[in-house]
């Protein structure tokens, strides 16, 4: 059984590497490392996007903000300048301050529609600013408690690494297992395989092993050359193995229903796009409706984040859920390959 599996693994690995996979991964790796190290800034928000016009007598807000580090470029001299500035830049928000510290009036100039809750949040931050200016902070009225010690801030560009691990490294198996199937169908290898001593498990596992090995080398190269060595190697290796296996099985489940890349492509790409929805949750953590949490990449992203930038969060149950999903995916993939792909090869 093991010998047969290893022979198949060798054959699949040679096919994968012979067909430019090796060079594509090298070029993509260089592109990703170059992008993370040189192109993406440390802080995505390069400039303060507030445009301020302090129309009060004492210019208290303007002085306080300049003292706090706001650039003079962000201080404008009229309401018209603020409106023009916001109009020209989608990221800007205009704040016009009038009145006095005792009776302040703000006009917030922005693009698009803002819902009432978001408006209240803006109001709260402005009121907080005025409280700080007048020294009437109410922070002593409540306290903060952290379940675990506060995690140190992470460089914004490094936060892209878990995303790249999931959406570049792990998905290799999803795409390539389908292509292996198409190629083998076309060449008649499936028919030959049916009359060989090999079974369906070996067929699936040899391909899974290929993308697990490739995923480990690819994933570790990416992490070591960007994040460094300060992470749990074993946990990362296990997650890559688990994730690669899961996506390979899912790729097999989808792949059996198609005959060639042209048929598969639009659906395959669409599924990969759906798989990417959890990126929104990483950008806006409050956005996590139930259906997004059911997408496997959501949990795997959390696990990678915790491995590379530990906060002490226990993700045992999340990991266990991925293990369970991988087992279910394998069973489904096995049944479909056995009953559909192998039968087509008759």
């Amino acid at each position: 059984m093991l010998k047969g599996l290893m022979n198949l693994f060798k054959k699949d690995m040679i096919i994968a590497l012979r067909n430019s996979l090796f060079w594509v991964l090298i070029v993509t790796l260089i592109l990703m490392i170059g992008m993370v190290r040189f192109l993406i800034p440390d802080e995505i928000q390069l400039t303060d996007n507030r445009l301020i016009f302090d129309n009060s007598q004492d210019k208290a807000l303007e002085k306080a903000l300049l003292y706090g580090g706001l650039s003079e470029e962000n201080i404008l001299q009229s309401e018209e300048e603020v409106i023009e500035g916001v109009r020209e830049n989608s990221q800007s928000i205009g704040i016009i301050y009038e009145g006095s510290l005792e009776s302040p009036r703000f006009t917030v100039v922005h693009h698009g529609k803002i819902n009432p809750q978001q408006k209240k949040l803006i109001d709260a931050s402005l009121k907080g600013l005025m409280s700080a200016l007048t020294g009437t902070n109410t922070e002593e009225a409540y306290q903060l408690e952290f379940i675990r010690p506060q995690a140190p801030p992470i460089s914004k560009k490094l936060t892209t690494i878990p995303t790249l691990l999931v959406f570049e490294v792990l998905i290799l198996g999803f795409m390539y297992i389908a292509l292996f199937m198409f190629q083998e169908k076309e060449e008649g290898s499936i028919r030959a395989y049916r009359i060989s001593p090999g079974n369906t498990s070996q067929y699936i596992l040899s391909k899974t092993l290929v993308f697990t090995v490739v995923g480990l080398v690819y994933g570790f190269s990416l992490v070591l050359l960007t994040v460094g060595t300060d992470f749990n190697f074993l946990y990362l290796a296990l997650t890559i193995v688990l994730g690669s296996a899961l996506y390979t099985f899912l790729g097999g489940i989808v792949g059996v229903f198609f005959n060639n890349i042209s048929e598969w492509f639009a659906i395959g790409v669409s599924l990969l796009v759906i798989n990417m929805i959890p990126i929104i949750s990483s950008l806006y953590p409050a956005f996590s409706p139930k259906f997004v949490t059911y997408i496997p990449s959501y949990s795997i992203l959390l696990i990678f984040n915790e491995i590379l930038f530990p906060t002490g969060k226990q993700l045992f149950s999340t990991t266990l859920a991925i293990v369970a999903l991988t087992i279910v995916a394998y069973i489904a993939c096995h049944l479909l390959v056995e009953n559909k792909l192998m039968k087509e090869g008759r």
Binding site: E102, S103, P104, F106, H110, H111, G112
Partner: peptide
């Protein structure tokens, strides 16, 4: 006493 108005430039 803090009065905040919102002005949207487009919808």
């Amino acid at each position: 006493n803090v009065d905040v108005q919102h002005k949207s430039l487009d919808q």
